[in-house]
Amino acid sequence: MSVDEIMRTWPATISVFLKNHMQCVGCPLATFHTAVDAAKEHDMRLSQLLDDLDWAIDEAEDG
């Protein structure tokens, strides 16, 4: 799933990308990059990014 698809499916995840100073919101590469690609591009641990995304999705669904 691309970063763009993640943000469109779960809008609460946008805050995760912004909080981590990732310029994925509005980036043309977001339609091609996966979370793995984004983590590598921004020198972030993949496990941390995925945990943060999961948390944001869970919070939005429980909210």
Rank of each mutant, 00 (worst) to 15 (best):
T34V: 11
W10D: 01
M1D: 00
A60I: 02
A60L: 02
T34I: 07
R8N: 13
M44P: 01
M22Y: 05
E41K: 15
S15K: 14
E5V: 09
W55E: 10
M22T: 09
A56M: 03
V25H: 04
M44Y: 08
T13H: 07
W55V: 10
M22S: 06
H42T: 10
V3H: 05
A12F: 02
F17N: 07
V16Y: 02
Q23S: 13
G26I: 08
S47W: 10
L49M: 09
H21A: 10
A56D: 01
M7D: 04
V36L: 14
V16A: 01
Q23V: 10
E5H: 11
L46Q: 12
L49E: 04
A38V: 15
D51Q: 14
A30M: 07
T31Y: 02
E41D: 14
W10V: 00
F32V: 15
L50F: 08
L53W: 06
T31K: 14
L53P: 04
V25F: 05
E5F: 02
D37N: 14
R45Q: 09
W10K: 07
E59F: 01
V36Y: 10
L50D: 07
A39F: 07
M7T: 09
D51T: 14
L50S: 06
W55T: 13
T31D: 02
R45K: 12
G63Q: 08
A12I: 07
C27W: 05
V25G: 00
M1A: 10
V25Q: 04
Q48N: 14
D51G: 11
T9E: 07
C24M: 12
F17C: 08
D4H: 08
M1G: 08
G63I: 04
M22L: 14
M1I: 08
E5I: 09
D43K: 12
V16M: 04
D43S: 13
H42Q: 12
D51P: 03
D62F: 03
L49C: 07
I6C: 13
S15P: 00
H42N: 15
A35G: 10
V25S: 06
D4Q: 14
M7V: 11
V16E: 00
A35Y: 01
P11F: 03
V25A: 10
A30I: 10
L50M: 15
I57Q: 07
Q23C: 07
H21V: 07
D43W: 06
T34H: 09
V16I: 05
D51K: 15
D52K: 13
G63E: 11
R45I: 04
A38G: 07
G63S: 12
M7W: 08
L50W: 06
L49Q: 08
I14V: 14
W55G: 00
R8S: 09
A60W: 04
W55D: 11
D62Q: 12
R8K: 15
D54M: 12
D4V: 05
L29A: 12
D43E: 09
L29W: 03
D62V: 10
C27M: 03
W10A: 09
A60E: 07
S15I: 05
D52N: 14
H21D: 13
D51H: 12
M44D: 00
L29D: 08
D37H: 15
K40L: 14
R45N: 08
L50V: 15
A38Y: 11
H21I: 03
A60C: 01
E5M: 10
A60G: 02
D54A: 13
E59R: 13
C24I: 08
D37Q: 12
W10T: 02
T31P: 00
D54F: 13
E59A: 11
